[in-house]
Design a protein around this nucleic acid. Structure first.
Lengths: 108, 108
DNA sequence: TTCCGTACCTAGTATAGCTAGGTATGGAAG
DNA sequence: CTTCCATACCTAGCTATACTAGGTACGGAA
């Protein structure tokens, strides 16, 4: 399980500019040093969810001599949501780190 | 949603020594600066799951002039699992951080 | 005696993410 | 030329997690 932060990651992947689903999967894989090799069955529904929530918008493109792709871009609300989710992630990871390191000096 | 890291957190809470469910909840709340105020309906089933998986063992105790409590402690397997999960968390959070900071200089 | 804090429990629900399937095209390999 | 792989999209259905919303019960204070 990718632990509820999938949406955050997908939004972040689109921050640099519009992309289509397949490319997003690869970009996440690369950007995480292969830690997150997300199945399509995870990412496509997430994209649909995010579009439904108006955080993304999409349009079909057909590059010359290529297959049709659905290009996604962040909406204004999506950009705002990303900023918010980044903060949430910061607080979340900080809290987990605190709990995992107890009060103790420093774990291996 | 506490995002799949609940078990890790609960195991970590027991690292310092045995405790009962209610105390675990409070310890997690304190240790996370109130970020994780977990409902009992989340924690008790998790404790049962972890005991079922033999990562915890429990026994009923009745402190003098007090109510009965179920005390949980880490088993050997539980200690090992915690070490493993700590590593997983490290890799996971590192990867998410990488994705959220893109390649860009540094986010606010 | 009533209520709050401690202390435990579970049935049912929502949903996230995965599995496992499906469709289709372009290009390379044979 | 046909077969296969990589690209590119999709969905139904499963499972597990975490939550909601209830319930029980005791000790002590008001």
């Amino acid at each position: 399980m990718l632990k509820g932060h999938l949406d955050t990651i997908v939004l972040a992947a689109l921050e640099a500019g519009p992309a289509h689903g397949y490319a997003i999967i690869e970009s996440i894989k690369r950007g995480s040093a292969d830690m997150f090799d997300l199945p399509e069955g995870t990412v496509y529904p997430a994209l649909h969810r995010l579009e439904e929530a108006a955080l993304l918008s999409s349009s079909w493109m057909t590059p010359p001599g290529g297959r049709r792709r659905r290009m996604y871009s962040l909406t204004k609300a999506g950009t705002a949501a990303l900023a918010e989710r980044r903060k949430v992630w910061g607080r979340f990871s900080h809290a987990v780190n605190a709990l995992l390191t107890g009060g103790r000096p420093w774990p291996a």
